[in-house]
Amino acid sequence: MSKKAFRPDVDAPEWKGGHSPYDIIKEGSIAIAVVLILTLILAVVFGSPDDPAITLKSWSTTAPVDFATTALSELNGTSGTATYGAPYNSQNSSASQQLGPLKLEYWIGVHIPINTAKVFVINPLKALPGQPALDKDLAVFQNASASAKTAWLNNYTKAAANMKFLNNQVVVNASDAGPVPLMINDLTQMARSGALDEALLTGDSFYTTDYTDSLLFISDGSYLGQVAQADHLTGSQWGMMNETGSWPGQAWLWLYTFWYQVSPMNSSSNGDVEVLAIMLLLTVGLTLMPFIPGLRSIPRKSKVYRIIWREHYQNQTKD
């Protein structure tokens, strides 16, 4: 540093002043004790939330019409998951979120393939034992031509706008809907018995820790969102920062969730990836702050450091 000019935002002066005694181990021990006591107090006073998970059983029992309508959307390929695109299924690129010209999601492609009609509806129904009528209808459905399937599904979907749940049965006044009414009704019964939870989870293996199928199915319905709304957890309610009840959530994401409140991200179909990109950019900026002329002078110019080191500067003026 001998000849080069001193840069106050990059270089630090050499300390020629005094030192005071400092017991790092004692300070650390006290700090741990204080945090532990504070944690105990907060845990006693506020506790923590633990609302039980929603199951396909609880959902279809509480809101059978919402369940059956969602099941239909999985079967006719109109649900959120069915039309998602990568990583769940191949759709044209417009189904995926993109960042300007970057179609990251689409380019990386399908890695968790899910055919909703098969995985959420047909395969679980096939697993039901001792249902000759259902087995026959499933065979009819699977062997039917594409146009026949489309016609049945369209007829049923139109009538399903007035779907009711009466005497424990899904009631839709559809004519010419082929095997669809039985399939939707039986899947609803299966869900209400709890068997669908099992089937989606243990479809491929006994040991399982992957809830992708069940969670996607549940999140395609309106029920999950209604429960969340009642607990003020949705995006437009700054939901990321809350947990159920009045517990704090990820409060450190306040800036992240802020961007969801402003245009164009609050209405853009690419909102998620746009917000992610903004935050990445800001984070990289903050990380490289020591190397960015101008920005790195803000701390010095703001003079906040004078409060932090006020004793030091007071002593300096005394000298």
Binding site: D51, I54, A86, G239, E243
Partner: peptide, 22 residues
């Protein structure tokens, strides 16, 4: 629990949008 169901199904879209969800 319910929180993990809600948070995972909400946050997946940002991760998927970046391509990382795969």
């Amino acid at each position: 629990n319910f929180d993990s169901q809600w948070i995972s199904t909400q946050a997946k879209d940002a991760i998927n949008g970046s391509g990382g969800g795969a």
